[in-house]
């Protein structure tokens, strides 16, 4: 099962490498990883996705928590949450018919064409990972030149929040 784990981390040198190292050391995979400072620049917020059953997720959370630099860790998948990922896709689009087809496809997925040349469209899309996967499937035949995905960011729904 896919897990979205959210971590509040001291924004210090070496902290990120400890998180990543832990996954390698314990034999867990990281599927996606995003990290950036928060409104408080002494803190980083890190979201990572991995696969695992409940027991494995519990171990991962505990192991992450044990790192000295981590302040809070939650497995967002346990409760209701919002998951977002940003994707940029460069597509082959020289044929006018294809350009039209692409445009309608982008609209259906509520994306934006953010750059255009005579032979390409660059599309920006946000949503959960499944939606981005679905878009890729929809345009695969047309000709994908490049895909850049940000990895998942997540936040819990409702009154719960992760803060010091």
């Amino acid at each position: 099962m896919k897990r979205i784990i959210s971590i509040l981390l001291e924004n210090e040198s070496g902290a990120l490498s400890r998180v990543v190292g832990l996954f390698a050391q314990r034999g867990y995979n990281i599927d996606t990883l995003t990290v950036a400072p928060t409104d408080d620049d002494t803190l980083s917020r890190l979201t990572l996705t991995t696969q695992g059953d409940d027991q494995m997720a519990e171990q991962i959370v505990k192991q992450l928590h044990k790192l000295i630099d981590t302040i809070k860790v939650v497995d967002l998948t346990v409760g209701s949450h919002i998951e977002r990922e940003l994707m940029l896709v460069k597509l082959k689009a020289s044929d006018p018919e294809i350009r039209a087809e692409l445009k309608s496809c982008v609209e259906i997925f509520r994306g934006h064409v953010v750059d255009v040349t005579a032979s390409t469209y660059t599309v920006q899309l946000t949503g959960d990972s499944d939606k981005l996967d679905a878009f890729i499937d929809a345009v695969r035949e047309i000709g994908i030149m490049e895909v850049v995905r940000s990895g998942v960011s997540g936040i819990s729904r409702g009154d719960k929040f992760l803060r010091v």
Partner: peptide, 11 residues
Amino acid sequence: VDPTSISKNIN
């Protein structure tokens, strides 16, 4: 004292 030691190998 270490939560990661609990239920790691044996529940």
